[in-house]
Simulated assay, not measured.
Amino acid sequence: MATIGFLHTADVHVGTFRTLVRELAPGRDDVHVVDEALLTGARERGVDDDLRDRLRGRLRQVAAAGAGLIVCTCSTLSGHAERLSAEVGVPVLRVDRPMAEAAVAAGRRIGVVAAVASTLTPTVDLLASYAGPGTRIVEAPCLDAWPLFESGDLDGYARRIAEHARTLDVDVVVLAQASMAAAEVLLADLGKPVFSSPRAAVRRADRLLG
C-alpha cells in the first residue's frame, strides 16, 4: 500500500494523524515531517519567496521519505502547498479541502473559527470557491485561544474554541485549524453541524491512494 505523508507545523499533530491513519487506513504506512518555522514565518511576514522555497523543500523531504501523497496539515499554508504538487512530484492535499466541501453542503450560514489570523483568509477563500448563491461565510476569530495551544494547554485550548463556537449565530461551524479537532467532540450537543479537518483529510488521502 502507498504511504501517506504529512507535513505539520506542530509536533502534536503527528500523534493525531498517525492515530487516524491506524483507524481509517489500517495497514497503510505514514511518514511525518514537522517544521514549526513555516507557520511562524507565515504569521510574521506572509508567504514570501523564501518561505515558499522552505515549504517546497519540506514537501520534497516528505516525498523522498516514500510518500505517495502528502497532506499539508497547516491551513495557513496548505493552499500554497497544494499548488506545489507538480514541483514536488507527488500529489499534495490541503487538509481542509474535504472539510470545506462538506461544510458548504450542510448549511448556508457558515461560521469559520480560527485561532490564528493567518488561517482566516485561506479558509474563507476555499469555502467561497465551493459555496453556492446565498451562502454567507462569517469570520469568527478566537485569537485568545492560541496562547493556550502554544503553552501546551490543549484541553484549555479546545474548551476555549468550543466556548467561542457556541456564541455564533450560524447554521454550520467550521473549525479552521487541524489543532481544533478536540473541540468538535465538545460541541457534540450543539445541535448544528460542526466540521474539523483531520478525519476527513485522512479518509480522502486513503481514497486517493487507492
Rank of each mutant, 00 (worst) to 15 (best):
L7I: 01
R199V: 09
A105Y: 12
A114M: 10
V170P: 03
A182Y: 04
V62F: 14
F6D: 05
V185I: 11
V31T: 12
A178F: 04
I70E: 01
V12K: 12
V95C: 12
R56I: 05
A182I: 05
V12I: 14
V172F: 07
L24G: 02
L38V: 02
L208S: 01
L93R: 12
I110Y: 01
E139F: 06
G27L: 00
R204D: 04
L120E: 14
A65F: 15
T119G: 02
T167H: 09
C74T: 05
A140L: 07
T16P: 04
Q177W: 10
L59E: 00
L120F: 09
D96A: 12
A205V: 04
G41W: 08
E44Q: 15
L69F: 10
P147T: 15
T19S: 12
M180A: 04
A145R: 15
L143K: 15
L209H: 03
T16F: 11
V33L: 11
L148S: 11
D50Q: 15
G46V: 03
R54D: 09
L39C: 06
R83I: 07
T135C: 08
A145Y: 13
P26K: 06
V47N: 08
T76R: 11
L51Q: 02
G5A: 10
E87H: 14
I70N: 07
R83D: 11
S196D: 09
T19P: 05
V62L: 12
D189W: 14
G134W: 15
V113A: 06
G46A: 06
V90H: 13
L93G: 02
T3N: 11
I4Q: 01
I70K: 13
R56N: 04
L93K: 13
T123W: 07
A106K: 00
A140E: 06
V124E: 09
R207V: 09
V92M: 02
G68K: 09
G66P: 13
